[in-house]
Simulated scan of single mutants.
Amino acid sequence: MQEDGKETPQEIKGWNWGAFIYNVFWGVGNKTYLPLLTLIPVFNIFWIFVVGFKGNEWAWQKGDYEDVETFRAVQATWNRAGLWNFIISIAIFAIYLVFFWSVLMNFFDQ
């Protein structure tokens, strides 16, 4: 895909956890503003997945990266932070469910 006259290398295409989790901040930080559409209620449920999938391409098009290695180094930080945030969020949600379930079961046992 070519946008702004800049070819997107095949090796950078793919999922970006930073763009998925930190969509608005990631978008502003990478000078790509389509992730701001995640601020639209209900539409954002669909759009966060688009941002996660297309984020690398958008960042490459808008960025002034010398090469793919530099781009990957920058995005690796976003990816690590996004993935850890996702894992921690799922863990907290699971703990919440277990706690809620045990409270609910105690309530009905009385």
Rank of each mutant, 00 (worst) to 15 (best):
I88L: 14
L39I: 10
Y33V: 12
V68D: 02
S89C: 11
F71Q: 05
Q110W: 05
F20K: 06
T32S: 15
V98A: 15
R72P: 05
S89E: 01
I48K: 14
F25E: 09
I12S: 05
N23H: 14
G27T: 04
V98K: 07
F46N: 04
E7G: 04
Q61Y: 00
G18E: 02
F100E: 00
G82W: 02
A59E: 00
L39H: 05
F20W: 07
V98R: 13
F86M: 11
W15E: 01
S89Q: 08
G52M: 01
T8E: 05
G27D: 00
Q10G: 10
G18P: 02
Y65L: 09
V51I: 15
Y33L: 12
G18W: 02
W26N: 03
T38H: 02
T77I: 12
W58P: 04
A73Q: 05
W15H: 03
Q10F: 10
Y65R: 10
W84N: 15
R80G: 05
A19I: 04
I48R: 14
G55D: 00
I95V: 08
S102I: 10
V51M: 11
A19M: 06
I92N: 02
W78N: 05
L104P: 00
L39G: 09
V50A: 12
W47F: 15
I95E: 00
W17L: 10
I95K: 01
Q75R: 12
K62V: 00
W60E: 04
G27A: 06
S102L: 14
Q75P: 04
Q10E: 11
A73R: 07
W58A: 14
S102F: 11
N106W: 09
N23L: 06
E57G: 15
V51R: 01
G5H: 08
A76C: 01
L97A: 05
L39M: 12
T32G: 05
I40M: 08
Q61F: 01
D64Q: 13
I12T: 06
E69W: 05
F20R: 05
F43T: 10
T38N: 15
K62W: 00
F100T: 04
V103S: 11
W58Y: 15
W47D: 03
G29T: 04
W60V: 13
W60T: 09
E3W: 12
G18N: 06
E3P: 01
L34A: 15
F86E: 00
K54I: 03
G52D: 02
P41K: 08
W101P: 04
I90L: 08
A94C: 10
W15Q: 08
G82Y: 02
K31D: 02
E69V: 15
N106R: 14
R80K: 13
V42R: 04
R72V: 11
V28F: 14
F49C: 07
Q10L: 13
F86G: 12
A76V: 03
W58Q: 11
N44S: 11
T38E: 02
G14M: 06
I48V: 15
G52F: 04
M105C: 07
F25G: 15
V28E: 05
W47P: 06
I12G: 10
R72S: 13
L83H: 03
I90N: 04
